[in-house]
Structure formats: C-alpha cells, structure tokens
Computed example of a mutant assay.
Amino acid sequence: MRYSGRFALVGAVIAGLSFAATAANATPAGPGVTGTIIGDETVGDRHIVVREITLPPGQSTGWHFHDGNLIGYVKQGTLSHFDATCESDGVYRTGSHIVEPAGSNHVHIGRNLGTVPVVLDVVYVLPVGSPLSEDAPNPGCDFQ
C-alpha cells in the first residue's frame, strides 16, 4: 500500500475510535516521558490504540519492540531513532511520519537529542492481548 493510502486508512481508523483520554501503561523510558491514550478500539483480531507520547529533551523511549505495526506522526520536535546495531535508522522532524514494523527482530529506541520536547501521535495496530511495547535490553550501545 502506498504511504498516502496508508495514512488515509489510519485517519479513517482514528476517526472511528472513541476518544476518552486515559493514562497509558509505563514503558522503560527516561524521566518525564509520558504517554496518554486518546483512542482505544478492538476491530476483529486487532487492538488499535492512538496514543500521544512526549519525550522531554535528553530523554528516550527505552529499548523496546512491538508485536504489531506502528505509524507515528511527529507533532513537535525532532525524534532520533536507532536500531539494534546502534546506528541511526532515521531522524524525524516536526511534520514527519514514522513507520515501525512488528517483531522482536526490530528492537529500537527513540531519543530526543534536541532542546524542545518531542511530541508524537502514534497509532498502534496490535494483536489483541499484546502490550503496547515489549521491553528489550540495550543491545550493547553506549547510550540508553
């Protein structure tokens, strides 16, 4: 599916969700990192969650992976994204989209190396019963 079609689909899914803000489950993240669920719906065998995540300057998401795919939008700031080889696999500025594939072979970390908070709007498309993310050990990188 082309990206424009994918984002149109995500928009349709988001529009169909009920938007009751609730606190999100904690993930292995740095101090001050917050997540708020703004939409939550089960469709067939998929759990679809819309979440806003804020990373203060100098903080990270912690090393993790997802059991389903994620599509994110950088609402503010610049997200630096690293894979398990410790190499950058993307720098996402305000207005950018990021797609994270599913699976334990896609361990990654998102870091805010800038001076303003990073605010992300993220759509999780997960198998029913899966957590939003799965903790993963640092793969040997000299940063966390």
Rank of each mutant, 00 (worst) to 15 (best):
33 V>D: 03
33 V>H: 02
33 V>E: 01
34 T>L: 03
34 T>G: 03
36 T>V: 12
36 T>D: 10
36 T>W: 02
38 I>M: 11
38 I>L: 11
39 G>W: 01
40 D>G: 12
40 D>V: 03
41 E>M: 15
41 E>H: 12
43 V>M: 15
44 G>V: 11
45 D>L: 13
45 D>R: 15
45 D>H: 10
47 H>N: 08
48 I>E: 03
48 I>C: 10
48 I>T: 07
49 V>F: 01
50 V>E: 04
52 E>Y: 07
55 L>R: 00
56 P>I: 11
56 P>T: 11
57 P>R: 14
57 P>T: 07
58 G>L: 09
59 Q>M: 11
60 S>N: 13
60 S>C: 11
62 G>I: 06
63 W>R: 05
65 F>A: 09
66 H>L: 06
67 D>F: 08
67 D>M: 13
67 D>K: 15
67 D>P: 05
69 N>C: 05
70 L>C: 08
70 L>G: 03
71 I>N: 02
71 I>K: 01
72 G>Y: 01
73 Y>F: 15
74 V>D: 04
75 K>H: 11
75 K>C: 04
76 Q>A: 07
76 Q>C: 08
77 G>K: 01
77 G>F: 02
77 G>A: 12
78 T>M: 11
78 T>R: 10
78 T>D: 08
79 L>W: 00
82 F>S: 00
83 D>P: 02
83 D>C: 05
85 T>Y: 14
85 T>F: 14
86 C>L: 13
89 D>N: 15
89 D>A: 05
90 G>W: 00
90 G>A: 06
91 V>A: 15
91 V>S: 15
92 Y>T: 00
92 Y>R: 04
92 Y>G: 01
95 G>L: 13
97 H>A: 08
97 H>Y: 14
97 H>V: 08
97 H>K: 10
98 I>D: 00
99 V>I: 12
100 E>L: 02
102 A>E: 03
103 G>F: 06
105 N>Y: 08
106 H>Y: 09
108 H>F: 10
108 H>D: 08
109 I>W: 03
110 G>L: 01
110 G>C: 04
